[in-house]
């Protein structure tokens, strides 16, 4: 299977400083596309939220140190999904991953024949899985913000006006924001508690829901070591992500 060429051929800029910036910008776009690929194929493969998050986290951690020009990102993504299935014990078959991914990358095409090309591709996924394990040194199980978000939402629900809660889709929005955050390496850079609080903060603000004020801010009650600027920087990164989405269509 030929995988779509990634956005490496960036038009070189005359200014070297700008060049590196635009190249990292192009990398970010590639990562965004590949993560969207992981999430969409994840849905088609029936993966739950946490294995999909694991796959994205594995992908981001891998490319934290690896060069995008050396490793094919879509292959890394496929192996990350396969590995995530093993780590989170929602086992996937390589055959299914290959077929679904092939369909995603070549819309409307026929399924792959079970020929040598198919077997080579499967071997590549297995080899690349070993490579990811090696590069991450077997640190493949992560703490997730999902469970924190759930806990925060339940606590907040008890605190807020029942009608305000019923009128506004806080839960859905926060959950969607959290899922979307995996398009970028936010999960690698921030602790899970901070990520969960930031998406909740943004969801509340989007709908103008006020949390009754106490001696300390509500988010300090949930997590002691988070500061206002932590929340702001996460939200800022999140908003850039939605900016990026517009450019990546």
């Amino acid at each position: 299977m030929e995988v779509e060429p990634c956005e490496n051929a960036v038009p070189t800029n005359t200014n070297p400083c700008e060049a590196s910036e635009s190249s990292s910008n192009a990398d970010n776009k590639t990562h965004f596309r590949v993560c969207r690929f992981i999430m969409e194929t994840g849905v088609k493969l029936g993966m739950h939220s946490v294995p999909v998050a694991t796959a994205c986290a594995l992908y981001h951690r891998f490319f934290q140190s690896a060069n995008l020009r050396v490793y094919e990102p879509y292959l890394v993504a496929m192996s990350a999904m396969y590995l995530a299935g093993k780590v989170e014990e929602q086992h996937l078959r390589t055959r299914d991953i290959i077929n679904v991914c092939h369909r995603y990358l070549h819309r409307g095409s026929e399924p792959l024949e079970l020929d040598s090309q198919f077997w080579e591709l499967r071997d590549s996924i297995v080899q690349c899985e070993l490579l990811i394990l090696r590069r991450l040194n077997f640190h493949v199980s992560f703490q997730y913000p999902h469970k924190y978000l759930l806990h925060y939402l339940l606590s907040l629900k008890a605190l807020l006006n029942r009608h305000a809660w019923a009128r506004t889709p806080i839960c859905e929005t926060a959950w969607a924001l959290l899922k979307d955050s995996y398009h970028s390496p936010l999960c690698v850079r921030h602790p899970p508690q901070h990520l969960a609080l930031a998406v909740l903060y943004l969801a509340l603000h989007s709908y103008g829901v006020e949390v009754p004020a106490g001696a300390v801010e509500w988010w300090q009650v949930f997590c002691e070591d988070i500061t206002n600027s932590d929340i702001e920087s996460i939200i800022c990164e999140l908003l850039q992500l939605y900016d990026m989405e517009a450019k990546c269509t």
């Binding site: 899985e129 070993l130 077997f138």
Partner: peptide, 13 residues
């Protein structure tokens, strides 16, 4: 066909 056994991955991680 299956790569690293998941039990090995769990154990090591």
């Amino acid at each position: 066909e299956e790569g690293v056994p998941f039990t090995a991955i769990r154990e090591a991680s």
